[in-house]
Each structure stands twice: as structure tokens, then as C-alpha cells.
Design a protein around this nucleic acid. Structure first.
Lengths: 108, 108
DNA sequence: CGTGTAAGGAATTCTGACACG
DNA sequence: CGTGTAAGGAATTCTGACACG
């Protein structure tokens, strides 16, 4: 209620706390950012801030890494999943557009 | 899913971020703790950690303060609200007990 | 009472780099 | 490639205290 109720997405957690939460070292967390697996925000001074969603993402990355999956592969999988989500969304919009074309504009 | 999905209650936010989020100074935030209006956890070293629920609580406190309400009164209101919640819970349990006494133990 | 501030110290975080493998 | 570590600096946080009102 403060301003945005999506507690899961708000980037408010510092790297030290993320380290505690995930069991990863700060070095690892920064490295995964370098490999474009995670995208923290920055405070005015430059301190990284993560969301709970980021924390979960990091746990998944950690699991993959334990299985020996390289960061490059993890990134490829992420991109693929992203593409699938985008396509799905696009198909939905396309369908909506067709419906509107035939039956006219209507809310919802 | 990491371990506890209650993002709203997890105490993971440092005082600096809470200050940004609420607009309160760190001095004020610490003072409200001294007056028992807010109860952060502590990191191993002693750094305060707050939840989103705490942040919302602080915003409410800030509003009350702007209206001129003193911290003591705010605390009294909090305690009263807590008592009401407790009583409600107790009445519920009492009722459950009576039902069980008459109709025997049953789950739920 | 509620809040600002200067004080001193300890822990945090950041970046770039060297190391190993 | 993925991670550890020492390096140096800047920002963060903590406590206890003095100040004002």
C-alpha cells in the first residue's frame, strides 16, 4: 500500500543480505551480473539492490551451476524462455486485434 | 519459494533503504524503535533489518506524527488494536473448544 | 518530546586486478 | 570459466551524547 504492493519485485535488498539469503558469495553474485544473469538496480551512490524475485532467480542459478551448467548456457535458456513468453503475448494481442477487427472495438 | 513466500514480512531491508522508501530520517526511524513502535531484526553485526510491513507501519506512524499525535499515543493505539485482535482470536478458540466438548474431537 | 548533529569506530560495498585452473 | 583474495577508498551503520525546545 505504501506505493507499490509488488513486494516480490521491489529492489530493496543489499548484496550482503542477498548473500545471506542465497548462500552465494558476493563475488559470485556480482559475477552473475557480469554474465547478464541478474539485473540489480543501483542506489544513488552505486550500491546494488535486489528484489525477492532476484533472490529466487539466484537460487535457481546456483542450482544450475551445481549441476555444472555454465553461465552462458543458463543465459541462453533464460533468453529462450523470454522469447517464448514474448511470442505467447504477441499471439494473444494478434488474436485480440482480429476479434476487434471483426466485431468492433469493445472494452476488455 | 526460496524458503518463505511472505515477502511482506521478511526482514531484509537496511535502514538506509527504509529511509528512502519512507522519507523519514534514520534518526527518526531509530527513535520510533526506541519508543517501541517498530521492531526491526538485527544482522549478525547489529545492523537493523526491516520488512515491507515495517515500512508501511512507519508510513502510518509518519502520518500520525504529522497530525501531531505523540509516539506514546501511537503506541497505546497499537497496543489496543493488538488486544482486540487477541480477544477475537481467543473467543474463536473458546468457541471451538465448546463445540469439541459437545460434539467430540474432529479435525477442522 | 522529537529530532538534528558531530564523533569515532566498525562493517559494507565498490571497482579493477592478479591468481588458479 | 568461475571464483578467491588483497587493495584502497567511499559510503553505511551503530551507539552515546549534547543541543534545542
Amino acid at each position: 500500500m505504501t506505493d507499490n504492493p509488488s513486494y516480490k519485485e521491489r529492489k530493496v535488498i543489499t548484496i550482503g543480505v542477498v548473500s545471506e539469503l542465497t548462500g552465494l558469495t558476493e563475488r559470485q553474485i556480482r559475477y552473475y551480473e557480469e554474465r547478464k544473469l541478474i539485473f540489480p538496480e543501483r542506489s544513488p551512490r552505486g550500491n546494488r539492490k535486489y528484489s525477492f524475485a532476484d533472490v529466487e532467480q539466484l537460487v535457481e542459478i546456483a542450482n544450475k551451476r551445481e549441476e555444472g551448467v555454465q553461465t552462458y548456457e543458463i543465459r541462453q535458456d533464460m533468453l529462450k524462455a523470454q522469447r517464448l513468453r514474448d511470442e505467447k503475448r504477441n499471439r494473444k494481442e494478434l488474436l485480440r486485434g482480429e476479434i476487434n477487427a471483426r466485431f468492433g472495438i469493445q472494452k476488455n
